[in-house]
Design a binder for these strands. Structure first.
Length: 294
DNA sequence: CACCAGGCAAGCC
DNA sequence: GGCTTGCATGGT
């Protein structure tokens, strides 16, 4: 990959393992929306970004070299060699099928607080509605952000959310999850939980700390560990992953704990990558029974 | 109308 | 300890 900086844009030339539609539509991130010109626009780390892909170039619109290295290089996980990861995972015959479906997926490094709230909202919910609730949260309580002639909104800080009442939060229509969002805001704004604390802990200890937040159980904690803290030894098991793992590896109804154990043994440090390829494959092909696998 | 959506907490034994 | 049930809201 060659990186070029022009007057207005940052351009990635022939990036390997980089497909924006797969990166932003694989359910790890809820704030980027596709437009009809093969581009996605969204907000992360208090910056708006339009990113487009054509031929073998990826353009980050209006992004300077400084902003690129300050924010987007790490956010887009450009320091990770996915070719090597795919090669290792491809030794497994199921993964060999799943990987091509999710070609170009990257596991983003998203802001911790935003990821916590986003996956609290994800509980027993579907992706379009999750995005809607987060959008209303940002429009109602985030800061305005001007970018390429339009107004966007930052993700509201823990302190801002902590200052709200349960009644104030009703307008985002999060349902029973609103009280959990408040609990998370209290724990982040008073320092009970912080990125610094989590970074000092092992993955399983960090998971325990995250699960002290109401609304954060095993699955949500795994998503936070994977999609924000890049703990790739995490393997979030949701309904899709449960179903695809049962179909491919167990051939019978299997409880989530056993699936997790199995994945941790099989994929180890590459659990999170394996999970993303499997999730994308299962969802893209709507695999719900044995006959759907081809 | 029932059922489900990238689950979790609380209440039961 | 594990197992069951209720949960807000919106889409099919």
């Amino acid at each position: 990959m060659n990186i070029k900086f022009t007057d207005n844009n940052t351009i990635l030339q022939t990036p390997e393992d980089f497909k924006i539609s797969h990166i932003f539509d694989c359910g790890q991130c809820f704030r980027f929306n596709s437009e009809d010109d093969n581009s996605y626009t969204g907000v992360a780390f208090n910056k708006a970004l339009k990113i487009s892909q054509k031929y073998d170039e990826v353009i980050l619109h209006g992004v300077s070299e400084k902003e690129f290295y300050d924010v987007w290089y790490n956010y887009l996980d450009l320091g990770t060699d996915y070719t090597e990861i795919k090669k290792t995972l491809g030794n497994d015959s199921i993964m060999k099928k799943a990987i091509p479906a999710g070609e170009g997926i990257r596991i983003l490094n998203q802001e911790l607080w935003e990821t916590v709230v986003s996956f609290i909202i994800s509980a027993s919910n579907n992706i379009p509605r999750i995005k809607g609730i987060i959008e209303r949260l940002c429009e109602s309580f985030g800061e305005e952000l001007e970018y390429m002639g339009k107004t966007y909104h930052t993700f509201p800080s823990p302190e801002k959310i902590a200052s709200l009442s349960l009644e104030d939060l009703k307008i985002i229509r999060a349902g029973f999850r609103d009280k959990y969002i408040l609990d998370a805001a209290y724990k982040f704004s008073n320092g009970d939980i912080s990125e610094e604390k989590l970074n000092c802990l092992s993955t399983s200890e960090a998971k325990k700390l995250l699960m002290t937040i109401k609304g954060v159980g095993s699955k949500v904690a795994d998503c936070i560990l994977l999609f924000s803290l890049h703990r790739t030894d995490s393997f979030p098991v949701d309904v899709w992953i449960k179903r695809i793992m049962e179909l491919c590896y167990f051939d019978e109804e299997t409880d989530i704990k056993e699936i997790s154990r199995f994945a941790e043994n099989k994929f180890a440090e590459l659990c999170g990558y394996a999970q993303q390829y499997l999730f994308f494959w299962a969802r893209e092909n709507k695999i719900t029974e044995k006959e759907d696998i081809c």
